[in-house]
Design a protein around this nucleic acid. Structure first.
Length: 165
DNA sequence: CGGTTTTGACCCGCGC
DNA sequence: GCGCGGGTCAAAACCG
């Protein structure tokens, strides 16, 4: 509901610096299985102060640790179609970034489709989805429970179209 | 006008 | 068998 305090622009300068396209490729190329946050060393060359270390953590959550291999195939919801395709292993990449805003513009258009409160955390969980049709990419944004200053963005799936920067 | 957002309700899978 | 949790979708409202 509105976040009057949050400016539309904000100083997302540092945030926009990371290219989603490039980043995605990088991630896709590598199979990640990190159960912990890995600090990415950003090159804040443009950082005048330099002291502002942009803490970006990358973690790949494989989940599906034996057991639930098929969380959800498709939301039939009245769809009697028989064409069911096996879903490929959808990668789940979690990014932890220090930011006051959760809506970080990564170059893609996202449409919010749900908000849920997490038990154990006063922070709500936002669900975003790519506005582009055919893009099974989903984004989950949640604030760090320990550090509200940090935002955990979890990307699911992969974009099938070029990023519109 | 289009697109998007927002809240609630609904649904599914799994657990016990 | 039933309940819980999480996740998703839908309609309406709002914005640019």
């Amino acid at each position: 509901m509105s976040s009057p305090k949050y400016s539309t622009q904000q100083d997302t300068t540092q945030l926009s610096d990371y290219a989603p396209d490039q980043l995605s490729n990088f991630e896709l190329s590598e199979f990640l299985t990190f159960d912990e946050w890995i600090e990415l060393e950003d090159a804040p060359s443009s950082m005048a102060s330099g002291s502002a270390h942009n803490p970006v953590y990358r973690a790949h959550v494989v989940g599906e640790s034996a057991g639930s291999s098929s969380p959800r195939e498709e939301l039939s919801g009245g769809e009697g179609e028989g064409g069911r395709e096996k879903k490929e292993a959808k990668e789940r990449v979690a990014f932890k970034t220090k930011s006051e805003i959760e809506i970080l513009d990564d170059g893609y258009k996202w449409r919010k489709y749900g908000k849920k409160m997490v038990k154990n955390s006063p922070n709500p969980r936002n669900y975003y989805r790519c506005s582009v049709e055919g893009c099974p990419v989903k984004k989950r944004v949640e604030r760090d429970r320990d550090d509200p200053s940090y935002v955990i963005t979890t990307y699911e799936g992969f974009h099938t179209h070029q990023s519109f920067s």
